[in-house]
């Protein structure tokens, strides 16, 4: 098993944190993992992306030729990374911001009304947690408890956010599993 997930969006949307949560959760579950963030002259309002690779075997390259899953948090990220998704791969869209779908027909598309779900979970600021929950549930990347553990490891020392973030992750799981 080898799964590469590309997370992409605006700086400030918690894009790197999503990847970091997934990476920590996967490590704690005993999987091999690499987390490769984009870096550059990027800041709030700019673009941010990272690729997380999970495998039960040793991971050779932390950068892949293709992504199995693309998590697009805004329109420009969808435009930029849509061509890099593997045939039969999954594109997860932040439906609250992306009003047009991918052009490709050979991938699965999963739209998540992120802002609405995050509000239901308690705050719009938990949108990235809703997203990581939805992604993990959709492709069985990790069970709910491991995502929560990964969030707690990724945000060590920031315990005051744990309750809200856990609600966000749960909301994402529920949406992916029930469609509402």
């Amino acid at each position: 098993m080898l799964v590469r997930t590309q997370f992409a969006g605006f700086g400030g949307q918690g894009v790197l944190l999503m990847g970091y949560v997934l990476s920590n959760g996967a490590m704690l579950k005993g999987l091999n993992v690499t987390f490769f963030p984009s870096y550059g002259a990027e800041m709030r309002g700019g673009t941010a992306n990272c690729m997380v690779t999970l495998s039960d075997k040793k991971i050779a390259s932390p950068v892949g030729s293709q992504a199995d899953i693309l998590v697009a948090m805004n329109g420009p990220s969808l435009d930029k990374f849509e061509p890099t998704v593997a045939k039969g791969g999954l594109i997860v869209l932040n439906q609250s911001l992306i009003k047009w779908g991918p052009k490709r027909q050979d991938v699965e598309v999963f739209s998540v009304p992120l802002v609405d779900l995050a509000r239901e979970a308690g705050s719009e600021r938990a949108a990235n947690m809703v997203m990581i929950g939805a992604v993990c549930a959709k492709r069985d990347l990790l069970p709910l408890e491991d995502v929560v553990k990964g969030m707690q490891a990724a945000m060590k020392g920031k315990d005051k956010f744990f309750a809200l973030n856990t609600k966000g992750i749960q909301r994402g799981f529920t949406f992916a599993q029930t469609g509402k």
Binding site: V33, T34, F36, Y39
Partner: peptide
């Protein structure tokens, strides 16, 4: 290099 410096692994 920049990748070895930035990548995160266990």
């Amino acid at each position: 290099d920049g990748l070895i410096g930035q990548v995160m692994e266990p």
